[in-house]
Computed example of a mutant assay.
Amino acid sequence: MKKPLWPSPENGAKNGGMPGPRIRIRAGLARTSAAKWLVIPAVLIGVAIIGSWAMAVEEPKFTVSLHEGAFEVRDYPAVVVAEVTVTGDQAGAVRKGFGLLAGYIFGGNTRHQSIAMTAPVAQQRTSETIAMTAPVTQTPADGAWVVRFTMPSSYTLATLPKPNDPRVMLRQMAPARFVVVRFSGVATQSSLAAKTAELLAFAQSHHLHTSGPATLAQYNPPWTLWFLRRNEVMIPLAG
Rank of each mutant, 00 (worst) to 15 (best):
P7D: 12
S8G: 13
P9K: 09
N11G: 00
A13V: 01
K14V: 14
G16T: 06
G17I: 00
M18Q: 12
G20R: 04
P21S: 03
I23P: 00
I23Y: 08
I23S: 14
R24V: 14
I25S: 14
G28M: 14
G28H: 08
A30K: 08
A30R: 09
R31D: 08
T32M: 09
S33N: 11
W37H: 08
V39Q: 06
I40P: 09
I40D: 09
A42V: 10
L44F: 10
I45A: 13
I45N: 09
G46F: 03
V47Q: 13
A48C: 07
I49V: 15
S52W: 10
W53H: 12
M55K: 11
M55L: 12
A56G: 06
E58F: 05
E59M: 10
E59T: 14
K61F: 09
F62R: 07
V64E: 10
S65D: 12
F71S: 03
E72Y: 02
A78L: 05
A78R: 07
V79A: 13
V79M: 15
V79T: 15
A82S: 14
V84Q: 00
V84A: 07
T87C: 02
Q90G: 14
A91K: 08
A93V: 06
K96S: 15
K96M: 09
K96Q: 15
G99I: 03
L100W: 05
G103K: 11
I105T: 01
I105N: 00
F106A: 12
G107E: 03
G108F: 04
T110D: 15
R111Y: 01
Q113P: 01
Q113S: 04
T118S: 03
P120H: 05
V121A: 03
A122D: 08
A122L: 13
A122F: 12
Q123I: 15
I130P: 00
M132K: 09
V136M: 13
T137E: 05
T137W: 06
T139C: 02
A141K: 14
D142K: 13
A144M: 09
R148A: 06
Y155P: 00
L157H: 09
K162L: 13
P163Q: 02
P163F: 00
D165R: 08
R167W: 01
R167L: 10
M173T: 11
M173N: 12
R177I: 01
F178W: 08
R182I: 05
R182L: 05
V186Y: 10
S190D: 15
S190G: 01
A194D: 11
E198F: 04
L199S: 08
A201S: 13
Q204R: 15
Q204I: 01
H206Y: 07
H207F: 03
H209L: 11
H209M: 11
T210F: 07
S211A: 13
A214I: 03
T215P: 01
T215H: 03
L216F: 07
P222A: 08
P222L: 11
T224M: 12
T224F: 12
L225T: 03
W226G: 07
F227T: 06
N231K: 08
E232R: 04
V233Y: 04
M234H: 10
I235Q: 04
L237G: 06
G239V: 08
